[in-house]
Design a protein around this nucleic acid. Sequence first.
DNA 1: ATAAATTAGTTTCAATTGAAACTACATTGC
DNA 2: GCAATGTAGTTTCAATTGAAACTAATTTAT
Lengths: 149, 149
Amino acid sequence: MLNLPRFLPYRLTKLSGFISRDLGGIYSERFNLTITEWRIIALLGSEDGLTAQVIGTRASLDKVRISRAVDRLVKAGRVKKQTHKTDRRSSLLHLTKSGRAILEEIVPLAQDYEKRLLKEFSPEEIEILDGFLNRLDSKAESLQKDNHR
Amino acid sequence: MLNLPRFLPYRLTKLSGFISRDLGGIYSERFNLTITEWRIIALLGSEDGLTAQVIGTRASLDKVRISRAVDRLVKAGRVKKQTHKTDRRSSLLHLTKSGRAILEEIVPLAQDYEKRLLKEFSPEEIEILDGFLNRLDSKAESLQKDNHR
DNA sequence: ATAAATTAGTTTCAATTGAAACTACATTGC
DNA sequence: GCAATGTAGTTTCAATTGAAACTAATTTAT
């Protein structure tokens, strides 16, 4: 019939579930952050002054989630909003000092987690995996478009 | 700092999100099934008479979700429960005729989706990917245990 | 110039979720 | 044998979610 444990979509969902629960646990227990909040901080860390919309594109998050997460981050003093000069509908988002501090605390933990996941992979294997994921990702994205047309 | 789009946990979550939305769309639009319901049907298709608990283990689903999904499946006439003879707390689950019918309709669609996803992968690459996922999966599972101890 | 359409982000509302409490049964230890 | 502990599955409750409606601002078309 269909062997569920060998079915790629099932396996990917399961794997990503493990990882999300795992990392999400670290973010929330130690830093009281959701994964979404963490992603926003991570993006602002590499490029300050992004709009909610750009964050949505970069992090594949929908605007409702972003709106709520930014709200919480602003309340927690991690992020501040600055009204866009030429388009007053949107805001440029910036990390506060405290936002940068938490980023610097989490980054090593996140990298360490990734390192542990990939511990038994050689650099060549990591490169191959990387390529596989890119191919799967762009294929999945295009199939999505196909279906909704 | 940290390059989110190259961060493995992020990439896996994103990829699995695409695929789940995609396949979930097919299941729900055409068959009015959630992914959880579909997984239960798929498992019962390959081995009839499983208990909720066994399904939980095999499909990595928590018991609350299973309970609710089984409930809906029973109401929809896809599954029937049969009280376990020696342990009256649990039930053996069976596909009805209509459950088997829907399974037979979906399996080719699911396989076709997987095939499209892997279209540009050679058999050797698929085997390598398979091994990678197994390794990541067992590593993620063991890291999960580590953290919660 | 201004009506119509579009876009950024927020709010509302109903559905989904999972943790914890619960029920019913089963097993263990004394 | 029976109290204490454990387990299967369900229910409750509060939190999270996303679709759709909404507000406010911008752009486009006439």
